[in-house]
């Protein structure tokens, strides 16, 4: 085939109708999968949120926005929504702040680096429920290792602190455990970013007399922008959706004091048997996630176009 022939073919293939149709056999299966496991449940969720549903789970017909009205009448919703935002912001920002130096560290060459990298992956590879339960044991009131150690060191006199049940502490404990399970992924995304920085730029700046801090601040950090963006946005979604940590450690209690919108939706449906408003909250949570995904797509598109 001549060069012109190839060019002509390319032009032909660019015609939308033709290309969409001819792509179908390739993207068809995944499209079907997406329709089945993403689009259909989403539609079902919205449909149920517009339906009147009893505590026995019996559907009693169209209810309009009734479930949403009931949800917004709930006096606790506002506090829980604010807490959810604080939760997401705190966990993501602390995670990123700790992961940046950690990635820097495991990017260095030192004996035992392989082992350190491997050890860092473990909390990520372990099931979140498992990690949460281990933390529950560590922080348990009378038999937990943490309180026992504090007592042996003489740092805690009198009654032990109830880390998991006392609302003054439990939210911070939850944030810490969430940071703990988020760090490995974040660190490795940033590490990948660090490794993609061409060595010659770094060397050139060294030749120009830049110190280590200057190199990090002016060369490496700006080049990490993409990795950081991806890590932040994926963490936003993960942390917002985070259910097992909270449920395993505090069940959102006492009352709703450590609930987020995710655990609250579950608690309403399956502890308080208040199914209707819970489905409405499910839709709102879903919409929030979609919003973050849209921002993610926008941002990655913008950086791609830039490149």
């Amino acid at each position: 085939m001549t060069a012109t022939g190839i060019a002509e073919k390319k032009v032909k293939n660019r015609r939308p109708a033709n290309s969409t149709l001819s792509a179908l056999p390739w993207i068809g299966p995944s499209l079907l999968l997406i329709l089945l496991v993403v689009v259909w449940p989403a539609i079902e969720l919205i449909r149920i949120s517009l339906t009147k549903i009893t505590s026995a789970g019996v559907l009693e017909g169209f209810f309009g926005l009734g479930n949403y009205r009931l949800l917004f009448e709930n006096p606790d919703l506002k506090t829980i929504a604010v807490r959810t935002l604080i939760w997401v912001f705190a966990v993501v920002s602390i995670t990123v702040a700790l992961s940046l130096p950690l990635a820097q560290l495991i990017n260095q060459n030192f004996p035992g680096r392989k082992f350190v990298r491997w050890a860092m992956i473990v909390p990520w590879a372990a099931s979140v429920v498992m990690t949460s339960i281990i933390w529950k044991w560590i922080l348990e009131l009378t038999s937990g290792e943490f309180n026992l150690t504090l007592q042996q060191l003489g740092l805690q006199d009198g009654q032990p602190v109830d880390w998991l049940r006392d609302p003054r502490y439990s939210f911070f404990v939850l944030v810490w455990v969430a940071v703990f399970v988020s760090i490995p992924f974040t660190t490795f995304v940033i590490l990948a970013g660090l490794q993609s920085i061409p060595n010659d730029i770094v060397e050139a700046s060294q030749v120009d007399g830049a110190g280590p801090w200057q190199i990090y601040r002016r060369i490496k950090f700006p080049l990490l922008r993409n990795a950081l963006l991806i890590a932040t946005i994926i963490n936003l979604i993960n942390v917002f959706n985070s259910f097992p940590i909270i449920w395993a450690l505090t069940r959102g209690g006492p009352g709703y004091d450590t609930d987020t919108m995710i655990t609250f939706a579950y608690k309403m449906a399956f502890v308080e048997y208040n199914m209707g408003p819970s489905t409405a909250l499910g839709v709102i949570n879903f919409a929030f996630i979609m919003l973050i995904v849209l921002i993610y797509l926008r941002v990655t598109k913008a950086t791609r176009d830039q490149a």
């Binding site: 006492p254 009352g255 004091d257 502890v271 308080e272």
Partner: peptide, 15 residues
Amino acid sequence: AWPKVSGSIQTQIGT
């Protein structure tokens, strides 16, 4: 109504 009321008592009365 009991299952629903009981659920609310369970999550809240302790506070």
